[in-house]
Amino acid sequence: MKILFLDQSGKPGGAELCLIDIAKPYRDRALVGLFADGSFKTLLQQNHIPVEVLTTQKIQVRKQSNFFQAFGSLTQLAPLIFKVAETAKKYDIIYANTQKALVIGAVASFLARRPLVYHLHDILSSEHFSQTNLRVAVNLANRFATLVIANSQASKTAFVQAGGKAEITQVVYNGFDGKLYQTSPAETQKLRQQLGVEKKFVVGQFSRLSPWKGQHILIDAIAQCPPEVTAILVGDALFGEQDYVKQLHQQITQLGLEKRVKFLGFRNDIPQLMAACDLVAHTSIAPEPFGRVIVEAMLCEKAVVAAKAGGATELVEHGINGFLTTPGESQELAEIINTCLQDQQTTATIASHARTTASQRFDVAHINQQIAELLLSCAK
């Protein structure tokens, strides 16, 4: 089975990292077509996955685009659509990994007469998308997709509530290679020394800096914790969100936390940094489609406190393999951090259980087998 994967991004995010794991078993008979150049292309090449940048023209449609903006973008996309359609004739399946890829892939699948698979990595709701984009995504998926793979039950539910067909939708969680999340104690100690947090209780937050990711909630919570509690923020702003970063720095100054909150920017050593933490916080104020960093922290044998919404509630059992907190409630988050600080033995037991359950539930080989069976049924 030969697969043409499509993705809109030049930068690796959660959906792109997921695509790498899915494409690896097919790398001798697949192509990843990108709609932008960048570090994601390099990452695919490092994993020996064939990749081609299909266009250098920026796709203007955004999550909040209205009808006229969306229609105007479609008229500009004709050359890309025809190029994808011609390329797709050499493959058995078109696999659209993002929403913009769905728009291109849907029309191309019709022209090339190839089945379309749409991997849904978003919660399709008005919190994140304009009504126009919601209608476009749902209608294209209903009309052209043979299969929609939702990355959580929360994503599937939102898709169906928006008018998506439940009968073509299957939930398949992201897969992970547990071996990539093993760090030696010596390496962890060295990194903590480099960060200057040897004697601190470190709370890590791993995501892009964005209002809906809720870094400001964590900062407020840190201010309500003892002085030995410090935070590291791993990630940076994207999509014109630099104003939010300025607000975070102002918040830190106002609360007198300059020595207790560290901005580390984008990093490639995420498992090592997670291992250097005592607790990992997920603080999104809107429902998360899946929550990749939650599983990554579990695999690093770290306790996680996650916002109780969306896919996170499918990953974390409160008090069993992690903690759940009300989204946006910094005081509640602070109470959980303080509990973990005061009872580190129980926290370690929860972290150990988290690693065991995550290794079993999200093993990449098992997840890829699920996807392979679904793709095989589409290609028949």
Rank of each mutant, 00 (worst) to 15 (best):
F239M: 13
D243I: 06
L238Q: 12
A237K: 07
P211A: 10
F239L: 14
G256C: 06
K246A: 13
A237R: 11
L257A: 09
V245H: 04
F239C: 06
L257P: 01
Q251T: 03
G265D: 06
L248N: 03
K262L: 15
H249R: 15
C225V: 03
I232T: 04
K259I: 00
Q251S: 13
H216Y: 07
K259P: 00
E258A: 14
Q242I: 11
L238N: 07
Y244A: 05
K262V: 05
L238V: 14
L257E: 08
R260G: 01
W212T: 09
K246T: 08
E241N: 14
K262T: 11
T230V: 14
A221H: 04
D220F: 01
L257V: 12
Q215P: 05
G265P: 02
K262P: 00
Y244E: 04
I222N: 01
A223N: 10
V229T: 13
L248V: 02
K259M: 05
Q251P: 08
Q215T: 10
L233G: 07
G235Y: 01
L255S: 08
E258K: 04
K262C: 07
Q242T: 15
T253M: 13
D243H: 07
L218P: 01
Q215R: 14
D220Y: 07
G265T: 04
V245Q: 11
K246D: 03
Y244H: 10
K246Y: 03
Q242V: 10
P227T: 09
L248Y: 01
F263E: 03
Q242G: 08
Q247R: 15
G256K: 07
L255N: 04
Q224P: 00
I217H: 06
